[in-house]
């Protein structure tokens, strides 16, 4: 395995806000690598630096062995990028958007035509290729952007929140595309997402990022195994009593979040009746009880002590305060 992306102590500050805080990791060739974290965690900033759109405050990185600061054009030629926000010209047709891109990357006319036809077929837009993008649905636009990002045959493809705002069916469809792209074309894909399921389904490895720091990095399976078995969520008016009662040795962890207690343990199915009996004998009231296999959401929770949604709410407040500061 060769290294596609090498990141060393990469940091980016915006005035007092540290958006990306001294991160280091390698991404191997042919991987689908996920940057998972709440909005405002530093995912897009990291991607902007790797795609040379933003200069790092300190640290360094290489993409395909090319330094992102020393040879911007070299990096730009070898990467494709699909931005979080749409970046199509709505007044042009699908074909014209592709053609514009091909010309910008100086792809010779005959190869350009051939590739555009191929890629539009791949994303199933060949029937609509001469329609103006304004008439396209969100899913079609996203597919067109992915096709465009592949036009110059990049060896690394950045996808910033590729399925944000899409319906579940389209999302599933896109996941299949992305997975088959990595498999068939051998492209390294780096995607950012705040959808746990997306990271779990697609990525060979996931880096969980929060407040600009990498807090965990492994395969989704290892991350989930790492939190100690299954998860039992107990809702109760007296969560503290629940934690005090559950002291059995087979319980890996019990933590309170609002009016819920999240318990990690091995083989939850076998122990669930014991848990209920224990709580009943200690007269601890239970409102509801649920068992589930651990998800990346649980992983995030175990590392940060917060659910990803709570984190996002915090970030929004921070960002608003920050914007106010900048404005005044």
């Amino acid at each position: 395995m060769t290294v596609a992306i090498h990141i060393e102590n990469l940091t980016r500050r915006f005035n007092n806000l540290v958006a990306v805080d001294n991160i280091s990791f390698d991404i191997e060739h042919g991987e689908i690598f996920g940057l998972l974290g709440p909005n405002g965690a530093g995912k897009t900033t990291t991607l902007s630096m790797l795609s040379t759109m933003l200069k790092p405050t300190s640290g360094s990185a290489t993409v395909n062995g090319i330094d992102i600061e020393r040879d911007e054009d070299g990096v730009r030629k070898s990467i494709g990028i699909v931005f979080q926000d749409q970046s199509l010209d709505e007044e042009l047709t699908a074909w014209e958007n592709m053609d514009f891109h091909g010309r910008l990357y100086r792809i010779p006319s005959d190869i350009r035509k051939q590739r555009i036809t191929e890629l539009l077929r791949l994303v199933e837009l060949e029937d609509r290729q001469h329609d103006i993008v304004k008439t396209f649905s969100g899913g079609m636009r996203r597919r067109l952007e992915i096709a465009r990002g592949l036009l110059h045959h990049p060896s690394v493809l950045f996808l910033d929140e590729p399925t944000l705002g899409l319906d579940p069916q389209t999302r599933n469809h896109l996941w299949q595309y992305i997975a088959s792209l990595a498999r068939e074309k051998g492209i390294t894909i780096i995607l950012t997402t705040h959808y746990m399921e997306e990271a779990d389904r697609l990525c060979s490895r996931v880096a969980i990022i929060d407040h600009g720091k990498i807090i965990a990095l492994d395969t989704p399976q290892n991350l989930k195994d790492g939190i100690g078995g299954d998860v039992v969520t107990i809702r109760s008016p007296d969560p503290a009593a629940v934690i005090a009662t559950l002291t059995e040795p087979w319980i890996t962890r019990a933590e309170q979040h609002n009016d819920e207690v999240i318990v990690s343990l091995q083989q939850a199915e076998q122990h669930i009746s014991t848990i209920v009996t224990l709580l009943n004998t200690h007269r601890v009231p239970i409102q509801s009880l649920a068992i589930h296999k651990p998800t990346l959401e649980d992983v995030f929770l175990s590392f940060t002590g917060k659910t990803i949604r709570e984190e996002e709410a915090d970030h929004k407040t921070n960002m608003r305060m920050y914007q106010r500061m900048v404005r005044h």
Partner: peptide, 13 residues
Amino acid sequence: QFGFLKETLVAPV
């Protein structure tokens, strides 16, 4: 605002 400028600016030109 519509994001198209990014597409142009990230190209190797």
